[in-house]
Amino acid sequence: MRIKEVIVVEGKDDTARIREAVDADTIETNGSAIDAPILEQIRHAEKKRGIIIFTDPDYPGERIRHIVSQHVPNCKHAFLPKHLARAKQDKGIGIEHASVEDIREALASVYELVEDREETITKDDLIAYGLLGGPSSRQKREQLGIRLHIGKTNGKQLLRRLNMFHITLEQLDEAMKQIVQEERHE
């Protein structure tokens, strides 16, 4: 599987693991201290080929995702749930610990951020689905993040990502039906 876009990752271990899964070029941020030359390299790659941000599912990874998104608009985003990026013997979390299959699936479910769109999903919709303010809201948001490949979120982030990634009310409804059905079978 050849990826046209350049993938932004945190380090060389992430690059090595991604190259085991797909044929792709990467730019390494070398952690969350992203300097101007790296941002310029990402900006240039975005103009030529497009960018997919694929950072670790932890606070530093989300910080890097935010910094790159702020400086380089029009990036696409791939997410890997935390439980799929956990190292054996609990030595950390990162893309480098994920299976080849999970990396391929995350890269096949890429979202593009588009800021100029009217919100289609509202806070009331999230409340109605039990994603806000309920006793199991956090667990439902985590399951939804996995199912829709949008990462782990709090309530405010969830509303923003659903609308930012153009997820429709119908897609949300279908995902929530599957989550409820899985809960019934547990």
Rank of each mutant, 00 (worst) to 15 (best):
M1H: 09
I3C: 00
I3R: 03
E5H: 11
V6I: 06
V8K: 08
V9P: 14
V9I: 10
V9T: 06
E10Q: 05
D13V: 00
D14P: 12
D14R: 02
A16W: 05
R19D: 08
R19P: 09
V22L: 09
D23C: 06
D25R: 11
E28T: 06
T29I: 10
T29G: 12
T29L: 10
N30Y: 11
G31L: 01
G31Y: 00
G31Q: 03
A33Y: 04
D35N: 15
D35V: 02
A36W: 09
P37V: 01
P37C: 05
I38Y: 09
L39W: 04
L39Y: 08
I42P: 14
R43C: 10
H44F: 10
A45C: 13
E46M: 09
E46C: 11
K48Q: 15
R49K: 15
I52N: 15
I53A: 12
F54G: 13
F54H: 11
D58N: 09
Y59V: 14
G61R: 08
R63S: 14
R65Q: 15
I67P: 12
S69H: 13
H71A: 14
H71D: 13
P73G: 13
N74C: 03
N74T: 08
C75K: 07
C75I: 07
H77W: 14
H77D: 08
A78F: 13
F79P: 09
L80P: 12
P81W: 01
K82W: 12
K82R: 15
H83K: 13
L84G: 02
A85D: 14
R86A: 14
A87I: 02
D90E: 15
K91S: 13
G92A: 05
I93C: 11
G94V: 07
H97C: 02
A98S: 13
S99A: 10
E101S: 03
R104N: 01
E105L: 11
A106S: 14
L107S: 07
A108V: 00
V110D: 08
Y111K: 07
E112Y: 01
E115H: 09
D116I: 00
E119Q: 12
T120R: 14
I121K: 04
T122I: 05
D124W: 03
L126H: 06
L126Q: 03
L126N: 08
Y129S: 02
Y129E: 07
L131E: 02
G133R: 09
G133H: 07
G133Q: 11
G134W: 07
G134D: 06
G134I: 05
P135S: 11
P135H: 10
S136Y: 11
Q139H: 06
K140H: 09
E142V: 05
E142I: 08
Q143E: 10
L144K: 03
L144P: 06
G145C: 03
I146L: 00
I146D: 15
I146C: 03
L148N: 01
H149G: 02
H149I: 00
I150G: 06
N154P: 01
G155Y: 06
G155W: 05
G155V: 09
K156C: 03
Q157G: 03
Q157H: 01
L158P: 12
R160C: 00
L162M: 02
L162F: 01
I167H: 14
T168K: 07
D173C: 00
E174R: 05
K177L: 05
Q178S: 11
V180Y: 10
V180C: 04
V180E: 15
